Simulated scan of single mutants.
Amino acid sequence: MEGARSAATERPLGGALAATAGPRGAVPDEAPASEEMRAFGGVAVARRRFPPGEYVAPPASAGHLVTLHLNGPVPGTWQPAQGRARGYVEARGDVIVVPAGTGCRQAPHAESEDLSVLVPDGFLRRVAGEAGADPDRLEVLHRFCARDEQAERIMLSFLPEIETGGLGGELYAEGLANAFAVHLLRHHSSLGERARRGIARGPAEGSGLSAHALKAATDYVGDNLAGGLSLVELAAQANLSPYHFSRLFKRSTGVSPHQYVVRERVRKAEELLRGGLPVAAVAREVGFADQGHLSRHTKRLLGATPGEILAEGKAERAGGGEAAGGGA
């Protein structure tokens, strides 16, 4: 199975997991650097395009690689590290799961575009342990051209993070990474049925954070809006694992930790804007990446831009001053 690009120079995946590789890890020289892996919340993600040719991926010892096919039907040849080559037609939305420690050869016959998520084995085992499963019994299962709509939805949620350089923030990225790891455990691992039901069910139905734990977490958010606010930090306030904290917090508040933090940042931003603080300073004060990030969320939650809120506050203060002067 010698293709026109079988001699292409292999290049390690970028990001925090640069020493690992997965399917199509042999990236052609002409592939743009922006397509390298980038770390997000405990996993590494890349959107990559591959011209027709053969790509050889050595066994990846550090992580399980999941790819989502993004463009139209692409025929080709696939050969696992230990197995015979076979033809395939990869359709849009098809998912491939390659467990850690396995390699492959893949030869698309037309340009192929994929979204890849590399899940470190240690991260997946940690999430399994937090969810009540036995990490020592965990084995990720190989999948090829499978349909998995939930995995597709989660993976596509990483795309805006790639395009904006993680604009959603660390807390959002961690939530996505944990959700994806749990999905991989539920649907693409060898965990027994009993353990799988436990992961799916989670904490007892109707339970939530204790009043003390909820107050500790929300007080921490209020005191640290300008900072990064990671899921690990919030979970520590409640003495829980990130996995259990996320589930119990949502049961207590009706929103995810990330959604709660965004709402609190917008609430505080509105207060500061109405008080006359400049937009750029408000964005920094409440932890948004920039004015555009702040504007996107105020328009979504309040129906107004920061400039409009600032102007409204100025008018309100002027009106209040005139009323006070008139009554003097």
Rank of each mutant, 00 (worst) to 15 (best):
A26P: 13
L65Y: 11
S61G: 14
A46I: 04
T67L: 05
Y55T: 05
G63P: 00
V27G: 12
M37A: 12
P73L: 12
R49N: 01
V27W: 07
A44F: 00
A33W: 04
G41N: 01
A26N: 12
A31Q: 13
P51Q: 01
P23D: 10
R24T: 09
F50E: 04
G25H: 11
E35G: 09
A46V: 03
V43M: 02
P75C: 03
A44R: 05
A31T: 14
P23Q: 10
W78C: 13
L70P: 04
V66L: 13
R47V: 14
H64W: 01
A60S: 15
A46L: 04
A57L: 03
Q79V: 14
F40Y: 11
E35I: 11
L70E: 08
V66F: 05
G53K: 03
Q79R: 14
G22M: 12
A81N: 14
P23I: 12
V45L: 02
V27C: 14
G22H: 11
S61L: 13
A44L: 01
A31Y: 01
V27F: 13
G22P: 10
S34F: 05
L70M: 08
A26S: 15
G63R: 06
E36L: 15
P32Q: 09
F50S: 11
R47D: 04
A46W: 00
T77I: 15
Q79S: 12
M37W: 06
G42A: 06
T20L: 08
P28L: 08
A33K: 13
G53S: 04
A46P: 01
E54F: 00
A60V: 13
L65D: 12
P59S: 04
A31P: 07
Y55V: 07
T20I: 08
V56H: 05
V43W: 00
S61N: 11
G72N: 14
Y55C: 05
A81Y: 07
F40R: 05
P51N: 00
V45Y: 00
N71L: 05
L70G: 06
A26K: 14
P73R: 08
F50R: 04
F40P: 09
R47T: 09
P73W: 00
M37R: 10
R49Y: 00
A33V: 09
H69F: 01
Y55N: 00
G53F: 04
A21M: 13
L68Q: 04
P32W: 03
G42C: 11
G25Y: 03
P75K: 08
E54S: 03
A62W: 06
L68V: 14
E54G: 09
G42Y: 01
A46E: 05
P59R: 02
D29K: 14
P73I: 10
A44Q: 01
R49K: 06
T77S: 12
R47F: 01
P28R: 05
A26D: 13
T67Y: 00
Y55P: 03
G53D: 03
S34Y: 08
P59M: 08
G76T: 06
V74N: 02
G63K: 01
V45M: 02
F50C: 08
P80S: 12
G63L: 08
E30S: 15
V56F: 08
A21L: 14
